[in-house]
Simulated scan of single mutants.
Amino acid sequence: MKIIIQFISILCIALSSQFALAQTTGVASYYSNTFHGENTANGEKYNKDYLTAAHPTLPFDTLVIVTNLTNGESVVVRVNDRGPHTKSRIIDVSEAAAKKLDLINQGVAEVKLEVLDDYFIKNIPTKNSN
């Protein structure tokens, strides 16, 4: 039974690390209000008041911590769209997320991305941690 539990644990960590973005940094932007109500790539309507984002490869419904490296502000967003369509950017966030990151005035910001599951896996306290 212990072997099965260990195998399942290793499998879960391996699968979650498949989408690891540990310390991935780059430029983020946010959706224009003109997209409010338009369909996203997963079929939902874009709502500027929801904490959502467009990412080129992460599976839909992945939760990502986005941290503005200029001011340290962070927000958790759910991937529900594909983009950004500007190759120099790594994520487009909703207006609500942009407000939390304080990037409305600048329009873009250098950010760090972390997949939420990976964040928790890396930060689970162990017996040996103090």
Rank of each mutant, 00 (worst) to 15 (best):
residue 24 T to Y: 11
residue 41 A to G: 11
residue 27 V to I: 07
residue 21 L to D: 12
residue 41 A to L: 06
residue 30 Y to L: 11
residue 43 G to H: 05
residue 70 T to M: 05
residue 68 N to H: 07
residue 80 N to E: 01
residue 77 V to W: 04
residue 75 V to P: 07
residue 12 C to S: 14
residue 31 Y to C: 12
residue 26 G to R: 01
residue 67 T to G: 09
residue 1 M to Q: 05
residue 76 V to I: 15
residue 25 T to M: 08
residue 6 Q to F: 10
residue 71 N to I: 06
residue 93 V to I: 09
residue 28 A to I: 08
residue 14 A to E: 15
residue 78 R to L: 07
residue 69 L to T: 06
residue 77 V to D: 11
residue 84 P to G: 01
residue 20 A to Q: 00
residue 93 V to S: 05
residue 15 L to S: 05
residue 22 A to Q: 13
residue 38 E to D: 00
residue 63 L to S: 13
residue 1 M to H: 15
residue 11 L to Y: 14
residue 70 T to P: 10
residue 46 Y to T: 04
residue 6 Q to N: 15
residue 9 S to D: 15
residue 1 M to S: 15
residue 4 I to E: 15
residue 74 S to N: 04
residue 58 L to W: 06
residue 71 N to D: 11
residue 90 I to F: 02
residue 73 E to P: 04
residue 89 R to G: 06
residue 65 I to C: 04
residue 85 H to E: 01
residue 34 T to D: 10
residue 69 L to W: 05
residue 41 A to K: 08
residue 45 K to W: 03
residue 23 Q to P: 09
residue 91 I to N: 04
residue 48 K to L: 04
residue 70 T to I: 09
residue 36 H to D: 12
residue 75 V to F: 07
residue 18 Q to F: 04
residue 93 V to Q: 00
residue 8 I to G: 10
residue 10 I to K: 15
residue 49 D to T: 07
residue 90 I to P: 08
residue 40 T to A: 12
residue 37 G to Q: 06
residue 75 V to Q: 08
residue 17 S to P: 12
residue 3 I to P: 09
residue 20 A to M: 02
residue 18 Q to H: 03
residue 54 A to L: 14
residue 22 A to D: 14
residue 84 P to C: 10
residue 23 Q to D: 14
residue 1 M to L: 02
residue 87 K to R: 14
residue 56 P to T: 11
residue 11 L to G: 10
residue 1 M to E: 13
residue 51 L to F: 15
residue 77 V to S: 00
residue 14 A to S: 07
residue 62 T to L: 05
residue 73 E to Q: 08
residue 89 R to M: 08
residue 9 S to T: 11
residue 73 E to I: 05
residue 23 Q to K: 01
residue 81 D to V: 03
residue 15 L to I: 11
residue 88 S to C: 12
residue 82 R to K: 13
residue 74 S to P: 06
residue 31 Y to P: 07
residue 3 I to G: 01
residue 45 K to A: 09
residue 93 V to F: 07
residue 2 K to D: 06
residue 43 G to E: 10
residue 60 F to K: 06
residue 53 A to P: 09
residue 32 S to Y: 14
residue 27 V to T: 09
residue 13 I to R: 10
residue 42 N to W: 13
residue 71 N to Q: 12
residue 4 I to V: 15
residue 72 G to F: 06
residue 48 K to Q: 01
residue 40 T to H: 07
residue 39 N to G: 05
residue 43 G to S: 05
residue 67 T to Y: 03
residue 73 E to T: 03
residue 8 I to L: 08
residue 32 S to W: 13
